[in-house]
Every structure is written in structure tokens, then in C-alpha cells.
Design a protein around this nucleic acid. Structure first.
Lengths: 155, 155
DNA sequence: CCATCATTGATGACGCGTCAACCATCGGTT
DNA sequence: AACCGATGGTTGACGCGTCATCAATGATGG
């Protein structure tokens, strides 16, 4: 049996709209900056940060994929593209013939070190710094609440 | 001259992480549901809602693009795909030989009417309903604040 | 040692979004 | 009428993400 749909009330609609707009516009702005300053995509940035943080700038393929929460296929495709641009290199894993190591190249390290400060500054300017400690805390709670519900809802 | 970068403090990092995660996982969950229940993408949904709300289920191409804030090219590509699936039809505009009208087909209307209630229910369940009125208001303020800064910052 | 099964990654196909180039039409000017 | 800039829309190329499939390797049980 069917229940009549409760559409969103105006205040709810406004909240939802703002929420949707933010995650439509903020990422694209961040991406644009990143592209402009270092010719990196968000995906490049994520991978490079993960690798640069790892010892010797290298990691197993699978660890890397898990640490950034990507599917293998996505990682494989993206590494191919980054590899073609000289940001990253694949190396055979001696321990496991199936495995692959991924390493940042010097060019990759240079790219991330050039891009990171500007990126963080933009995030601060647009999101973090204007918030009071209470507001920052509220943001955390709201987002983590949604994440909790995402896990609870279906799985 | 160069200023030393202020990286994110732990509490800031946690907030930012939660924020990013939400915007990574929530949309993909919503998209999955939409796909599962009606074989529609988010983009399809957005277009169909806009058209279904318009008088006679039709709108000028450009109005449509503006009302959902898409570039023309994107709209054109997407309409081609939707058209191929029978959700939407293009019609010549009698007033302006360059213009194009876009209309929902009966199949398109059926699709949106089947998908919308479930979509709204999911949004309510995951985001809106668990929030107190004060929290909803806070969410709105936080998001609108970011949007304001986005407009202020570079333009 | 061999058969089987699971895991690691790569690959190809497809939908989606952006950018740049392009073509048609409109509206006003001369 | 012939031109010309502005407007409306399409197209092709490319990067990105997902899915399904596949090859190679490793682990396990007989």
C-alpha cells in the first residue's frame, strides 16, 4: 500500500537547495584552482597526497586504492593517465607477482608541493576559517550524522 | 614573498574530511537509488523535474538550461541521450528559427512520477527529517555562507 | 603435483561533463 | 538587398568513473 508523498516544505527546500548547490559549486571551484595553478585534477591531487605521505613516496596498488577509497578499476585507469603524464610510476612487486607498487616521480612530487599550499588556503578561505569553533563543530556533527545514516540505511 | 602554509589542525581536518565524505557518498547513494527504481540518472531527474513543472511539460532549450544552471553544451548532449531513450522530445520553435522547445514525453512523465516519491523519501530519511528545526537552520546558514564566499571569492 | 578457486590488476565499452570549434539564424545598419 | 555582430544550439575530442570481463598469479585441498 502506498503512502502519500510528503514533499519538502519551503524551509526544508531551502536547506536542501543550499546543500546541493554547495556540493555542486565548491568542488568545481576547487578543481578549477588546482587545474589553474598546477595542472592537476582533484583525483591527481588525492593520489599524489596519498603517495607523498607514504614512506619513500611509494605504496602498494591496493593499499593506495583502499586509503583513498577507490575501486581498483578506477585507480588503474587513473594511474595510467597519471603515468602517461609522468607524475607516477608503476613497479613490479617482488613479493607478489600480481601486485604492483606505485611511486611518485620527482615531477609528481614537485607538482603536489606546488599545488598543496594554494589548495589548503582556498579551503580555509572558503570553508574553514570563517567559521567559529562552535560552527566548525556543528558542521562536523551535521556531516558525520549524515554519514552515520548512510551506513545505517541499507547495507 | 612566500608565507608558510598553515595546514589543517586535527579538528579542522576532521570537519573537512566529514564534509568531503558526505559530498562523495551521499550523491552516489542517491544516484544509485534513482537508477535502481526508475533507471534514471540524477541528471535525468533534474531535467525531468524541470520539464514536468513547466506548463504543458515543455520549455525553451535555453530557459531550461538556465533554470537548472547547466551549460548549453551539456544540456544539448544530455537531451540527445534522453531523447534516444524516449524521455524527452525536441521541437522546432515557430517564433525563432534557431530556438528549440523541449518537451517531456509520456514515458518521461511516467518515469519521473515513479521516481520522485522515493527520491524525496530518501533525502528526508538521510538528511532532512533527523534534524531539529535549529539544526536545519544551521545547515542552511552554513551552506549559504559557503555559497556567499564562493561568489565573493574571485568573480 | 595437480585441479580448483580466490585475488590482483588491466582493459574495453559506455555514460557523463567541459572545452573549443562550428553553423544557422536573427536583428539592425548601410 | 548585402552585410555583420550577437545569439541559439550542435558537434567532436578528451578526461573521468563505473561496470563487466579477462589474464596472471597465489593459496588450498586432494
Amino acid at each position: 500500500m502506498k503512502v502519500k508523498t510528503r514533499w519538502l516544505a519551503p524551509s526544508e527546500q531551502r536547506a536542501w537547495r543550499a546543500f546541493v548547490d554547495v556540493h555542486q559549486k565548491l568542488p568545481s571551484r576547487l578543481a578549477r584552482r588546482l587545474q589553474a595553478t598546477g595542472n592537476l585534477s582533484m583525483a591527481d591531487y588525492i593520489v599524489l597526497v596519498a603517495l607523498a605521505d607514504a614512506p619513500h613516496g611509494r605504496q602498494h596498488f591496493l593499499e593506495l586504492a583502499q586509503s583513498v577509497d577507490w575501486e581498483r578499476s578506477r585507480m588503474s585507469h587513473h594511474l595510467s593517465r597519471m603515468n602517461k603524464r609522468g607524475l607516477v610510476a608503476r613497479e613490479d612487486c617482488p613479493k607478489d607477482g600480481r601486485g604492483v607498487h606505485v611511486a611518485v616521480t620527482p615531477a609528481g612530487r614537485a607538482a603536489i608541493e606546488e599545488a598543496a599550499p594554494g589548495h589548503v588556503a582556498t579551503v580555509r578561505r572558503l570553508v574553514i576559517d570563517p567559521l567559529s569553533p562552535e560552527e566548525l563543530d556543528m558542521l562536523t556533527r551535521l556531516c558525520e550524522g549524515i554519514l552515520d545514516r548512510l551506513e545505517a540505511d541499507l547495507l
